[in-house]
Design a protein around this nucleic acid. Structure first.
Lengths: 146, 146
DNA sequence: CTCCTTGCAAAGCCTTTGCACGCTG
DNA sequence: CAGCGTGCAAAGGCTTTGCAAGGAG
């Protein structure tokens, strides 16, 4: 069964009302494998009903984030994406050419994180890292670089 | 002598005209130690003349970026900053609480970069990494988190 | 002289907000 | 029943664009 029930329970326990809109938004977000923009969630929800407004999408996503049930990440190109917390921390690899998004293991960053703490006293949030670069396909498509 | 002359030469050689506006914008960007938003560059330039429009700031910054003379980075909070390339690659540490910006040595990322290439075939651009977290001061100010 | 670059202002994009009605609990 | 949540539409912030005049080369 799906993770979205946990999210819904969580909201309910915190005194928030569960409306059909919120259910659909949560399901759309939770059932997708990766990250989605508000617009993408909107499109998903629209396939099931026309009676949801984009403002409600934003409000619900913000609610989930404020409750710690979802994350909001600003990718390097300025695109803002949301995801439920089920995925756990990971690094976003964003291709600067084709825009594709790869989720990498954030364990790779643990060493760096420790060093940032030691050298700069900075407590890095491994949940929110995104790195720009070129994916495999685009490296081969542009041997000279852009 | 300043780095901005190199930038200006470079533009000229590529057939772009050097206007007083472009000179001032380049100087403002090059003489600042770190990164600046378009608005900050605008403010800088305004201290020297009133006859520059914000649209010109955006157009010139975009020109510099398209010519590879400057970088455009979207920090984790969605703020877009520009910098000339003289600073070399570095990591942006953005405090999610006070918003302060620390430049860290991107050498820390070399190992991670290699692993991303090996594991995901991803060629990370070390020039554009930004990491959210808490700076030293804010770690002590918010022992319980927000 | 040619035409690139600029200022102005309006438009554009994405996101947020005010309001009254409807629905959840 | 109480009041939170919604749709609608307008506003908001930041950035881009169309146009005619002006300046660089």
């Amino acid at each position: 069964m799906s993770h979205c029930h946990t999210l819904i329970q969580n909201l309910r326990q915190n005194g928030y009302r569960i409306t059909p809109q919120r259910e659909m938004i949560i399901e759309s977000l939770a059932h997708q494998p990766g990250h989605q923009t508000a617009e993408q969630v909107f499109d998903q929800v629209k396939t099931r009903t026309r009676s949801v407004n984009i403002a409600t999408i934003y409000r619900t996503l913000d609610l989930l984030v404020s409750q710690g049930l979802a994350t909001r990440t600003s990718l390097c190109e300025g695109e803002v994406v949301y995801a439920t917390r089920q995925h756990g921390p990971h690094i976003h690899l964003v291709c600067r050419q084709c825009g594709c998004l790869i989720n990498a293991d954030s364990g790779l960053m643990v060493g760096v994180s420790d060093q940032l703490q030691a050298l700069y006293g900075f407590d890095a949030d491994l949940q929110h890292i995104s790195i720009t670069g070129l994916c495999t396909a685009c490296q081969h498509n542009s041997p000279q670089g852009g």
